[in-house]
Structure formats: structure tokens, C-alpha cells
Computed example of a mutant assay.
Amino acid sequence: MSSLSLADVFRARQRLAGRVAHTPLVESPSLSSLAGVPVYLKLETAQPTGSFKVRGATNALAEIAQSGVRRVVTASTGNHGRALAYAARALGIEAAVCMSSLVPKNKVDAVAALGARILISGRSQDDAQVQALRMAQEEGYAFVAPFDDLRVIAGQATIGLEILEALPDAATLVVPLSGGGLFSGTAFAAKGIRPDLRAIGVSMARGAAMHASLAAGMPIAVEEVETLADSLGGGIGLENRYTFAMTNDLADEILLVDEPSIARGIVHAYRQERLIAEGAAAVGIAALLEWRIAAGHGPIVIVVSGANIDMDAHRRIVMENADA
């Protein structure tokens, strides 16, 4: 597969049927009142691994399994590794996951609980990816990229199909943006059906690699630092093949939100929506709470990408933002 087509996305959906959740799309009365237009939340928190990543990982591994490969390796900030381990266990494939020392312990433990081999390397996803590629070369593992892989992108793109089937008049998609697999996949599918639809990517202000790369006109290295949106950390790869160009073509706007705003998004999700959302999943809510999303383009759909936050950290954030 040298490029992605809508046919690939529909094939991915068939491949995922019965293996991942068709997640709810629910209206948020509080955010709708604030925005002045209907606002809906696409709850990828309902996936069996707690995040959207299970779509791409399952689609990729289902294809790989057909070729007889029995060992796979990846690099991850946590959620992709958990998804790969989950999909590998279901398909009877051995999985190894390379992660950096910045990955929260709860995410490392969740991957290990699914039977994957864990390797901690360096202080960035780029460091972890070097380790994963070395294992692929030296130990015979098949490498599955966390985002820059058309099979992974096609799996994530099924979110776009589900959104438009449930809400055909959606006008604006608000999607967390990191390496670009979720954003480019969701926007590709949705805009392939509705070219007039607006797609907004949202990243954290600290270490937003895709935003910096787009500003530079090419993939660049960005220091990975600690952030509440840890799942959005890491680079996009200096030799990025797909998601840089796709995000550049598909993004109508990219917004950055700071750490206090991400905390407010987490707290709003908990108090007003009764949702546990990790920092990366709360960036879209944070952007709307900051009045950063033009309300004239509604209905708005915000992808809430995952729930895999350390619960002690979540409790602390909620308590520290009691007046938010």
C-alpha cells in the first residue's frame, strides 16, 4: 500500500468488526451551551484498551498475521503499546514494546499485563524507536510503527466513518494531534466523504512535534518533555512517510493548549461529562473551554481519545483544580 484510499478504510472497518468497539457519540449539554452550537464527544475511552489505538494496531496485526509473521515490535508512549499487546494476544502473536523512561508507570504496567515483552530505552519515543528498529533488524521482529503506517492510519480512520454515520451534518472535527495517525486518519475518512468539513488538530504547547514540523516545512526533532498530555509526546520521525504530508493537507487549523488548560479539560470531562479522560484526550475540550474554536462552524465533534491516566494523578488534578 503506497497511498491510502477510502476503500482501504472500509476494508479496515470490516477487519475490525467484532474486535474493537463501535464507540458512542454523545452530545455534551455543557459544551453545547458554551459554544452556542451542538457539541458531541466521540468516546474512544470506551475501547477495550481505553484508547483509540486499538483500531490501528488491530488492523495492522490482522494484515501481518496473514503473512505468517509471529513476532512484532513497536515503540510507544503507552497506548499504542497496550493496543498492540492486546491485538497480538488475540491473534496469538508475540509482541515486544519499547518505551522511554517518560512513559507513566501505569501505562507500562498495563502493557506488561497483556503479556508483551517490555524494554525501557532513553528519555524519548525517538530513543525507544531506535531500540525497536534494532530489534526488528537483529532479532527478526516485524516493526509496527505507532502512527506512520498506512495500516495503522486506516484503522484510526474508521473513527471518521463512525462520526459521519452517526452525525451526517457534523461541521467541525476537533482531534488530538501528536504523530498524526489519529488526526490524519480521522480527517482523511471524514473529508473524503464531506470535503467541506473543518478538521482542527489540538496539541499540547510543550513539545508539539507535528506543529513545529509543519511550521518548519519539514519533519524536525523536538525535545520531548513531561506534560499532562503524555500520550501526545514524541517526535514524528525525521523520515516521516505519511502523516506529515497528510496532516499538512488535511488540517484547517492547529491549536496548542498549555498545561493549566489541559488540567481544566481533564476536570471538565470528569465533573461535567462524568468521564475519565487522560491529558491527551482532554486537549479538544480544553481548546473549546478557552474559546479557541470558532462556534459558527457547528455541530462540533471532539474526539476524546483515551482514558488511560494514572488515577492518583487524576485525583490530584481534580483536587488541585477544585474551583475550575
Results as ranks from 00 to 15, higher is better:
Arg55Val: 03
Val174Ala: 07
Val283Tyr: 00
Arg123Tyr: 03
Gly115Ile: 02
Gln272Ala: 05
Leu275Lys: 11
Thr77Phe: 11
Val202Leu: 09
Tyr270Cys: 12
Arg271His: 10
Met246Thr: 02
Lys107Trp: 01
Ile93His: 09
Ala116Thr: 01
Thr158Ser: 08
Leu255Asp: 03
Ala251Asp: 00
Ile118Pro: 11
Ala324Tyr: 07
Ala216Asp: 04
Ala157Glu: 02
Ala166Phe: 01
Leu161Ser: 08
Ala209Ser: 15
Leu182Met: 00
Phe147Tyr: 11
Ala208Val: 04
Phe143Ser: 03
Leu173Arg: 14
Leu288Lys: 05
Ser28Ile: 00
Ala87Pro: 04
Ala88Leu: 15
Ala145Asn: 12
Gly237His: 15
Ile118Gln: 11
Ile93Tyr: 03
Leu250Tyr: 10
Val37Phe: 01
Ile220Asp: 07
Arg123Pro: 01
Ala21Lys: 10
Arg134Glu: 10
Ala90Thr: 08
Ala17Pro: 00
Gln129Ser: 07
Asn248Thr: 02
Val225Lys: 11
Pro38Val: 07
Gly234Cys: 09
Asp8Lys: 15
Asp258Gly: 05
Leu256Gly: 04
Ala209His: 09
Met204Tyr: 00
Ala294Ile: 08
Val9Asp: 07
Pro104Lys: 08
Pro299Glu: 14
Gly298Ala: 13
Phe183Cys: 08
Gln47Leu: 05
Ala190Lys: 10
Ser213Leu: 14
Ala190Met: 06
Glu278Tyr: 03
Ser3Asp: 05
Gly78Pro: 13
Gly235Ile: 04
Lys42Asp: 09
Leu114Trp: 02
